[in-house]
Design a protein around this nucleic acid. Structure first.
Length: 836
RNA sequence: GCCGGUGUGGCGGAAUGGCAGACGCGGAGCACUCAAAAUGCUUUGUUCGAAAGGACGUGUGGGUUCGAGUCCCACCACCGGCACCA
């Protein structure tokens, strides 16, 4: 097969070029990684796999362009690069579309996949298609079930009754991570609470490691994402303190981050919706019991948005009971309120109104005592500390302890360990940590997901499906009512749901819920390593060779959810002995969004830019260059501010150089024009560091510069026959390949080489060419540039100083002034400090 | 409230403490054309000046330094995360 047929076009014609190479690339399959030698240097470059809803959009166009730049770059550096693609193809939109149109979710999903696949091919993404995966295939989701059972056997998957987030619109439960501002992340409906029996993954067991291991990612992840992850886990350090309760055998434990304020506790508060509150008032007088019932009703009615409003008035009631402060034996009234949360800490707090704003608000509302126990600095430039009882402003700052018995005089830093030690000695408390993170709720009451591989038996309880019977396939959707109704549609598939118990053989029922699709995506990067294996989820040895992922590319909208789950599952797989690393993604590139006229694109706003339309108008190369050149990758791109036509113009200029070269291939570049060669090799020397630090926009700018100087060399320099021009053109083709694969391939063919240019190793920079013949020295007077002179790069400090002092511009600037000091940084700078 | 980030021409953006504005978009002028588009060339931070040449200029105010967009302190604005989390 001849891959370098002569090009007939005399002008850059992106659509002819695309047509010419697509078919050839299909046959060459240059990105297949089936037979990589064991000792080959490797990189794993992965884009977050797409959810196949309709065609690709401009956001995909950016993310996948950038991922492809990295994959192609490392190939050019001689690495074997794994750059796979798959489809996150389970999930609600397919189901909703299916309901709306009365078709199988499978049909809708796999049609969209075909469309996106076609678009990816036209976009020249360098995927290894032999490893393609679909999470909605039984061949994939059986390994979700395998993972679930591994976790079930380790006690990391469990079922519990708990109030859960419920989306009344989608009629399914939601993970905490899917509730944003009290609303369903997907549809925006107000989320309510519902008490349900649901499956959880025990991510809280890994809370400390999920925070601590972030330090391993400081090199490769944006600090923004690290802090988002840290915030989400929400670890706080403090102490558990035990309070005896009058008339109750069991004491109550509270969690506090300020044990140093223990002497300032003047009451205790129990969360209204905690079981403890109901128990405490059970023996109270009738009036209190009725008041409590009314209050509890009120609290339950409030949705999260109302409840979370921080400027709400404090409400509550006295329980009639008292606690004993362990440090001073004082009797503290126990109050009940909804400002304390039932599911954080122990659902009860010690209230220190002088030093906590919330407690102070409550104390003032119910006229409770306020006692200062920390001598804080005055705030906001005030002369003296104002009594919180007067000002209504609590004093949360640090200071020396007062009114605290034997602890008086200690600073906050000293007193916290001292008090904890004292409590510990007396068995009344200990240091403790708390987390905002909750266990990951993974059950969903919907059809289009992975069936949970558990059989419920009246006698044996929760029985795992034997691994020989995996996968538990989804029943056909035909005949099932997929309409959201709060119970899984699978429950109605009689033939499917009724099975004998694997243990005792009696009639039993399959679990009819499906898994959260974030389970699918929490380990898919490992499935690519053995995408076609029927024996294992992934081969442990392949994981040793390829994983973890070297570059993970995707939107910052997944900075919490998906990344936290993937990190968690990776640690679980590590503990189970399947992988030898603890973090899945060594480096993370979060590209910004593609906007139009300052806002997110949407059909309803009328500012939608269609991927297919741009592709037709400018071609894949111009689109990819535009994405890379627009801004640093993390920043948003406003499509109104960029110019795909400009990118196309640049590509045409670069392409034309390859047509103009007249030197035959194999000519000796050493004989070529030195100035042009220096530019070429400066590019080769600088490009790797720029790409590896994701400064793609600068690399494109440098390619434009190289194109411009080569053009000038042809038109008004040494001419098209100079070997340096050929060298520049070859470097342009190999480097441009990472941004504009079609144009680069065509240039490579124009220069007489066979496809694919994508597997050509980049030329090394020649260090001897990086030394300039002369450099421009800058002469400053008091830091202002007054003159410039070209000098030899190895000029001595004394010579340079002499030239500077003699220069006309410097003399004029010095005038009558007196020279105080001369700084010489040969060969580039002299700065003369003068006194007027 | 706590934590993190960002502020540079008309616009997107460059700049190991050493020539601010690379590269591009847009604008202006010119060439080619009957004309337009496309393409090419020149020019383009603000301001004073005929020019030569000045002055000013990286959110604001201070500081360190021979020299600051870059480092330090304080502030302002915007963006993001968390938030009655004890």
């Amino acid at each position: 097969m001849s891959t370098n047929e002569p090009n007939i076009e005399e002008k850059y014609d992106f659509s002819a070029i695309q047509d010419r190479w697509l078919g050839i690339w299909d046959k060459l399959a240059p990105f297949n990684t089936a037979d990589v030698p064991d000792d080959a240097p490797r990189k794993y470059v992965l884009d977050m796999f797409p959810y196949p809803s309709g065609d690709l959009h401009m956001g995909h166009a950016e993310a996948f362009a950038l991922g492809d730049v990295l994959a192609r770059y490392w190939r050019g550096q001689g690495f074997s690069v794994l750059h796979p693609i798959g489809w996150d193809s389970f999930g609600l939109p397919a189901e909703n579309a299916a309901i709306k149109r009365g078709i199988d979710p499978r049909e809708w999903t796999y049609q969209n996949i075909e469309q996106q696949k076609t678009s990816f091919r036209r976009y020249a993404t360098s995927f290894d298609w032999s490893r393609e995966i679909h999470t909605s295939d039984p061949e994939y989701y059986r390994w979700n079930q395998w993972l679930f059972l591994e976790m079930f056997n380790k006690g990391l998957a469990y079922r519990k009754d708990s109030p859960v987030n419920w989306c009344p619109n989608d009629q399914t439960v939601l993970a905490n991570e899917q509730v944003v501002d009290g609303r369903c992340e997907r549809c925006g409906a107000l989320v309510t609470k519902k008490k349900l029996n649901q499956w959880y993954f025990k991510i809280t067991d890994y809370a400390d490691r999920l925070v601590d291991d972030l330090s391993l990612l400081e090199e490769g992840w944006q600090s923004k994402v690290l802090s988002m992850q840290r915030n989400w886990v929400g670890r706080s350090n403090g102490a558990d303190v035990t309070f005896e309760i009058e008339g109750r055998a069991e004491p109550i434990t509270v969690y506090t981050t300020r044990p140093d304020t223990l002497f300032g506790a003047t009451f205790m508060v129990v969360a209204a919706d905690a079981d403890l509150a109901a128990e405490l008032v059970a023996e109270a007088d009738a009036e209190t019991r009725i008041k409590f019932q009314d209050y509890l009703e009120e609290v339950k009615k409030a949705n999260d948005i109302e409840r979370q409003a921080t400027d709400r008035e404090k409400t509550g009631l006295f329980s009639g009971r008292f606690a004993i402060n362990p440090v001073n034996g004082e009797k503290l009234p126990i109050w009940i309120s909804d400002y304390v949360l039932a599911d954080y800490g122990h659902g009860a707090i010690m209230a220190v109104p002088a030093h906590d704003q919330r407690d102070l608000d409550f104390a003032k509302a119910f006229d409770l005592p306020i006692r200062i126990v920390v001598d804080t600095e005055p705030v906001d430039g005030a002369d003296a500390v104002v009594d919180p009882a007067e000002s209504g402003i609590a004093l949360p700052g640090a200071g020396k302890m007062i009114n605290s018995g034997k602890f008086d005089g200690l600073t906050k830093a000293e007193s916290i360990p001292a008090i904890i030690a004292d409590l510990e000695e007396r068995g009344l408390g200990h240091a403790s940590k708390n987390y905002r993170l909750r266990d990951w709720l993974i059950s969903r009451q919907r059809y289009w997901g992975t069936p949970i591989p558990i059989i419920h038996c009246g006698d044996c309880g929760e029985v795992p499906v034997p691994s020989s019977e995996l996968p538990v396939r989804l029943p056909e959707s035909a005949g099932l009512d997929l309409q959201a109704k709060g119970a899984s549609p699978l429950g109605a598939a009689e033939d499917w749901v009724n099975v004998p118990c694997p243990t005792c053989g009696k009639p039993a029922k399959r679990d009819s819920d499906t898994m959260d699709t974030f389970v699918d995506s929490s380990w898919y990067f490992l499935r690519f390593l053995s995408a076609n294996s029927e024996e294992v989820a992934f081969d442990v040895n392949e994981a040793k060779k390829w994983a973890p992922v070297d570059h993970y590319v995707g939107g910052v909208e997944h900075a919490i959810l998906h990344l936290l789950y993937a990190r968690f599952i990776t640690k679980v797989l590590h503990d189970l002995g399947y992988v030898d690393f603890v973090e899945p993604f060594t480096a993370l590139l979060n590209q910004g969004m593609v906007l139009m006229d300052g806002s997110k694109m949407s059909k309803s706003k009328g500012n939608l830019v269609e991927f297919a339309g741009e592709l037709d108008a400018y071609g894949a190369d111009a689109l990819r260059v535009t994405m890379a050149f627009a801004s640093p990758p993390e920043d948003d791109i406003d499509w109104a501010d960029v110019s795909p036509a400009g990118a196309a113009k640049f590509l045409a200029r670069a392409w034309r150089i390859s047509k103009d070269v007249t030197t035959p291939s194999g000519s000796i570049a050493d004989d070529g024009d030195r100035a042009l060669r220096r530019e070429t090799h400066r590019f080769l020397a600088d490009a790797p560091a720029l790409i590896e630090s994701y400064k793609f926009n600068v690399v494109v700018a440098r390619l434009m510069e190289l194109t411009n100087v080569t053009r000038r060399a042809i038109d008004s320099g040494p001419g098209a026959g100079d070997p340096a021009v050929r060298e520049a053109a070859e470097v342009l083709a190999t480097a441009l390949n990472i941004f504009a694969p079609f144009a680069a391939e065509d240039m490579w063919a124009n220069l007489g080489f066979p496809a694919p240019v994508a597997l050509v190793r980049w030329k090394d920079a020649d260090p001897s060419l990086l030394v300039a013949d002369s450099v421009t020295a800058v002469f400053q007077v008091n830091g202002k540039v007054r003159d410039r002179v070209d000098v030899a790069p190895d000029i001595s400090a004394a010579d340079l100083e002499a030239i500077a002092l003699a220069s006309e511009g410097v003399q004029r600037a010095i005038g009558e002034g007196q020279i105080v000091k001369v700084i010489v940084r040969e060969p580039k700078l002299v700065n003369i400090a003068i006194k007027a």
